[in-house]
Computed example of a mutant assay.
Amino acid sequence: MLVTLFRRAASAARTLALCGAGLLGAAAAAAAPGPAGAVQGAQASVRELAIADYRSYLAEDHPVRQGMRRFAELVEAGSGGRLRVVLRADALPGTPAQQIAALQAGAPGAPALMLVAATGLAPLAPDFALLDLPYLVQDHAQADALLDGVFGDALLAQLAQLGQARGAGLVGLAWWENGFRQITSTGAPIRSADALRGLRMRVIDAPVFVDTARAMGAEPVPLAFADVHDALRSGRVAAQDNFISQILAGGLHELQASLSITNHSYGALVLVANRGAWRGLDPAHQALVAGAAREAGRFQRDAARAQARQAMAQLARSGMDIHELAPTERDKLRARTAPLRSSRLAQHSPALWKLYQAHPSAR
């Protein structure tokens, strides 16, 4: 019964999306062309949708940029060229919260579509913070099963419901990913759960990440990413956690000797659209964009995992000592963080938590 209700909620959200939101480029023509202007009319009928990521520093071969290109190809091909996705290399100014607020409001310069970290949506819909909980998602197979199923649809549906209530906001289209967070350290790799005890570790400045590090036994030091290099050089912190691609792209391997594969937190991305602008698309194009977003999301997740393997090999060649935490030691960390999961889960939707528990991948 619970699953049926959430399927209906997700279906209703999709229907809402197919009646609603994404910022259209100025290429859309307001007036129909006359017979003498057939060529001009055909050109004017092309509509542009701008897409951006919340980060401006991504290389062109980054999995997110690969996914954006794939999304653009699918939309243009599926629309027969009547829709064109424009890939922006810049990002909206400000913090993630300020970026999301600008996208919601359709502020000047805001794109139609943006990739945002799931954790950034938590102030709007608190259940999006569920995915940040330590060891809630334990591997890629579980991530795919949850996000591509009723659990993921139910989360996206919450954005549609918020927008309907407020008359503005966002439409959640698909799940992409940053991947799993790992730990780098100055000395030897972390080979046991006990090796984390007392380790001064930089974490994202958000309660769930601070509490996770503390529950694992480390001494969390919340810092913005821009401050990580200085903190490592000065010895203020001896470790930090991040995605493998970010460890390489951010040059953290130049300051840290070891990489420990802990998979302690999963970082999901959400492709969202400005709700008011999404309504500028007809239902057929909305369905096309939504389908392309999901297909491109699956493509991007595969690309992210492939690049993580390549990045790990590159980090090893650079001299990093890489160690994958043994399952028994990972189980110890999962047990240590169980009270945190329990206390945080009490703050979230009981129905959503039941969907998670009911899924065969939850163990």
Rank of each mutant, 00 (worst) to 15 (best):
A21Y: 06
E60W: 09
A17G: 03
G22F: 08
A32T: 11
A36W: 14
L58P: 11
A59D: 11
A13W: 03
L49K: 07
Y54M: 13
M68R: 02
S56G: 11
L23N: 07
L24M: 04
S56N: 08
L18F: 10
A42F: 08
A44K: 00
Y54T: 11
R69K: 01
S56K: 09
R8S: 00
Q66T: 08
A21G: 14
V39F: 05
Q40E: 14
R47W: 04
S11P: 04
V39N: 01
F6N: 09
G37D: 13
G67C: 01
R65E: 15
A26W: 07
A38K: 05
M68A: 05
A50W: 02
G34T: 11
G41S: 06
A42L: 13
A30S: 10
G34R: 04
A13D: 07
V64S: 11
G20S: 10
R7I: 00
Q40L: 14
A28H: 05
C19D: 14
A42S: 06
A26R: 14
Y57A: 14
A12W: 07
A9S: 09
A38W: 08
G22C: 10
Y57H: 15
S11F: 13
H62W: 04
Q43Y: 10
R55Q: 10
A31E: 15
A28V: 06
L5T: 14
R65S: 15
Q43L: 12
A36C: 05
G41M: 04
S56P: 09
A30I: 04
R8P: 00
A28I: 04
Y57Q: 15
T4G: 07
A9D: 07
A10T: 03
G41E: 07
A10S: 05
C19W: 09
T4D: 13
V64D: 10
A27G: 15
A21W: 06
L24P: 03
A10Q: 01
M1E: 12
A44S: 05
G41W: 01
A44Q: 05
A36R: 10
D53C: 06
Y57I: 12
L49Y: 04
Q66E: 13
Y54K: 08
T15Y: 07
A59Y: 04
V3P: 03
A38Q: 11
S45V: 03
E48V: 03
A52M: 13
A10F: 01
H62E: 08
R65N: 15
T15A: 13
L18V: 10
L49E: 06
A26C: 09
L58Q: 07
V39K: 04
V64T: 14
A28Y: 06
Q40R: 13
M68H: 02
L16G: 12
Q43V: 12
L24V: 06
A13I: 07
A36T: 08
A9H: 08
T15W: 08
A52S: 14
L24Y: 01
R8N: 03
G34K: 05
A31T: 15
A59K: 10
A29N: 05
Q40V: 09
Q66C: 11
P33L: 04
R69P: 00
Y54P: 02
A59P: 09
A38N: 02
A9R: 15
A27S: 15
A13R: 07
R47M: 12
A50I: 02
P35V: 14
G20W: 01
